[in-house]
Design a protein around this nucleic acid. Structure first.
Lengths: 309, 309
DNA sequence: TCAAAAGTGTTATCCTTACACCCATGT
DNA sequence: ACATGGGTGTAAGGATAACACTTTTGA
């Protein structure tokens, strides 16, 4: 169609050797159970399901699906790509990690001994502010030491961790983790290094898996606000309180009940099923279901720009 | 720290052969000049800058930077990862493409003959609705043929392309392109296939480069609404009209001037420089500059959830 | 009867949208 | 004078946030 000034091959001559690399697929599979946002792990919570891309895999997603099912016996439902990292291992061959975020429900599969669901707040205790901000404020003294006599560091700390009523942005999960790494307050930052400050609470993971988990949490916290993805984590029928508690679990913050209900109603995301809960404490609640029609109706975005009529 | 039930290596035995693959880096470098959103191309607009990851590259980004600078002599400024694709070429070795979105300004470099800036609307004419919707509506007859007697196809077409006042969501660039591909209305869908319907206007690119460009446009159109990235495309000092026209170029839609200005002002994204334009038609305009403080002040998001006090 | 959860009303405030209008400069 | 773009006022309607309050069940 268009005359080529140079073929792609021509344009790519003369560099260093092309490097054949290993490609690894990593899954962050999330479910919310009993108000707890959980992530599916192997090796007793020390690693995320993962494995190399193989010649038998027809696509990245199907390769990932194969690894998750082999290692956890859990089906991989909805999944989206998260990020691609390159590991620069000295002298060893280079490897590329392609990570995915999956949304599922714990009930969807029977137990399998090699796979364990863990609350993601075991890895990031300071990200859970539903019962108060104590876990986050416990980090402040250590961070103050790191930021001592450095105005730029102080700014970063207070921007990310709040402190004196500075406000908390729940989406900055990765930035907070990276700051803790930089400050050497997290064990994986010290591999092969000296001990300095006392470590911060929170469980470690292999390689960069905890970093990938932070990326997944951040992505999900951002996404629930503008795409109806929460419903992947809920049964077909649910009460508004269950919906609210699922959102709270993800966001790590408590929401205002009356206003939350109006928000949901106003967005017309759900419809009544006509059924009610029973047998639980309190007044029976209406059961709702997601209204899949919204996916067609609006391309689902929310404009935010003052268009001209 | 945590006792391992199995080492990572153990858990990964017994599959097919690991597959060493080629990794390719691809850049979509965008600038807005004279109200035109442009993308940096090589091969007379037929390809995006790209090249394989090499052993000398210290990271994915630095490898990309090296390729862009070699092929276009243009510096790569702000860049973020877009998406990672796997190419399943039958019998040939598999290859992985990691694409990036970069924001820049055309003025930042001198001309270089191998590299050309092209309006992205040359590739997607129907995405420009600033001068009217004729280009999009011209597609409707062909799409109607494809959707004939298929209610689901009709729904997709009207959801994506609007039609009778159904509204237009400018972020669905990729979905629209993929629908046109499926309908066989785009030349790259017919490689090695038969000719059916007349093709839709819009320039072709090699491989899946046009698809990657669609991904980049969609990402950028979404992102300008919640992150202050437009400023990467503007000079340090700019008028509000320049800012507006840059946004319009990206969104492909006209914006309402008075309300746009209030929106910007209300977000406190910019500050006055005290300087004015001169020598142009009309009243001199105040020059503004981006207020970088916003990046610290708020983690920049806009909550959208009814938090409890 | 009480605890627990569901669910409603009301208000003040802010943001968005649309429309109308005036201002300052170059030609 | 007038074309061109810069810039302001204002009012309606909608969304948000905070508060107080009523309803329905199980124990």
């Amino acid at each position: 169609m268009s005359p080529l000034a140079a073929t792609p091959t021509d344009a790519r001559q003369g560099g260093m050797r092309n490097e054949p690399v290993q490609v690894e697929l990593i899954a962050v599979l999330v479910a919310v159970t009993d108000g707890d946002p959980r992530v599916l792990t192997i090796e007793s919570g020390f690693a995320l399901p993962s494995g190399p891309l193989e010649s038998g895999h027809r696509s990245l997603q199907s390769g990932l699906r194969a690894w998750v099912e082999r290692q956890t016996h859990h089906p991989l439902g909805y999944a989206e790509q998260l990020y691609t990292f390159a590991d620069q291992q000295r002298d060893a061959a280079r490897s590329i990690s392609i990570s995915y975020l999956g949304l599922s429900r714990e009930a969807a599969a029977a137990e399998y001994p090699g796979a364990i669901w863990r609350s993601w707040y075991e890895y990031f205790p300071w990200e859970d502010r539903r019962q108060g901000v104590a876990a986050a404020e416990a980090l402040l003294p250590g961070l103050a030491v790191w930021a001592r006599e450095d105005a730029a560091r102080h700014l970063r700390v207070s921007g990310l961790f709040g402190g004196a009523g500075r406000g908390w942005n729940e989406e900055l999960v990765l930035q907070r983790y990276e700051l803790l790494w930089e400050a050497g307050l997290v064990p994986e930052a010290r591999r092969g290094g000296a001990v300095e400050m006392p470590l911060v609470p929170g469980a470690e993971m292999t390689h960069d898996h905890r970093r990938i988990l932070a990326t997944a949490i951040a992505r999900l916290r951002a996404k629930i606000k503008y795409r109806p993805v929460v419903f992947e984590l809920l049964p077909r029928d649910f009460t508004l309180l269950e919906l609210q508690q699922t959102m709270e679990a993800l966001a790590g913050q408590s929401l205002h009940k009356p206003n939350f209900r109006r928000l949901i109603e106003q967005q017309e995301l759900v419809e009544e099923t006509g059924k009610f809960t029973s047998g639980l404490a309190g007044r029976p609640a209406k059961l709702f279901r997601f209204r899949p029609a919204v996916l067609e109706e609006r391309g689902f975005t929310g404009t935010k720009l003052p268009l001209v009529r």
